[in-house]
Amino acid sequence: MIGAALLLFSLPQCTTDPAPSVREAPLQGPAHFVQLVEDAANPYSPEKAALGQMLFFDPVLSKDFSLSCSSCHLPERAFTDGKAIAVGVDNREGIRNAPSLVNLAWITEGLFWDGRSPTLEEQAVHPVINPNELGSDWATVLSRLEAHPDYPGYFEKAFGTGIAQQTVVHALAHFQRSLMSSESKYDSVMRGEAAYTDLELHGKHIFFDSSEDLPDGECGHCHTPPLFTDQTYMNNGVQQELAPYHYPDAGRGAVTGVKYDNGRFRVPSLRNITLTAPYMHDGGFATLEEVIEHYNSGGHPGLNVDPKIRKLHFSDEDKRALIAFLGTLTDTSFVRKLSDQKVLLQ
């Protein structure tokens, strides 16, 4: 008994207790996904995510109260905006397509198309101050939140502390981390609850190179399930090589300084792909048909174009089948209107 009592007494000394009002609850993913690893520096809680959701949809983060994060990341478009290039405050155009925000809790190899931010927390700093996005500054944002009638109390509830840049970006990170899509038809089939149509099955075989009677689509190498991204950076031949290893947008190469990374971009998830047009880092393809035609043609040649990008010899039926399979990745539960989580903060 004494030993047990000592054991219980000794354990709490190894940890730092959160403030009494702050709840921590590890984020759980679906059973058919890789297991998540809790970030000890910013443990997840529903309250933090609820606060992040409020901030995500609040134009208070923009210079002139005209835009919020959700202006370029609309839930009904799987958190994209339907534009080729994102447009920020003062109608200033950015440089790339607004990426979908899906299953980001699993992303460990960098955010943004070029992977320049290693974590969601670090990523959330930038859109607020980017003149082509929200165009504000952190001092202004923090003073507005401090002066708000509700936010100080919400931060206290979520973090047990006050408003700071760190708590703002931690909240935004957790909201984005909570955006999980795992209820598509693909998932239902994986669980044995649904079956593909013949056309979808035809497309699946092409996608995963799993039939000797059909052309290989080479898609599943990089768009690996269940995330439908392998989190690598690749040159998929979408840009014309201007000179050896030189492309109009250097992408990953501008971050790493490695010339072989020039023209490489993060492989995006294909979940909800039917909702996220236009496609590629530059929004250059308006439709999935154009995307498939690009891959079917082998794309532009280039010294560091991935070897898996080659002429594919699809028939019209193959192309239709591939699009049908991609349609099974749409998760309608993911794109419905988000419920108000404010109650968690009151």
């Binding site: 004494i2 030993g3 047990a4 000592l6 054991l7 000794s10 354990l11 000394q13 190894c14």
Partner: peptide
């Protein structure tokens, strides 16, 4: 028995930290 349990408690404490 009490000393043995104490040793266990200390060991767990050290390992935990």
């Amino acid at each position: 028995q009490i000393l043995s349990l104490f040793a266990l408690a200390v060991a767990v404490f050290v390992a935990g930290c």
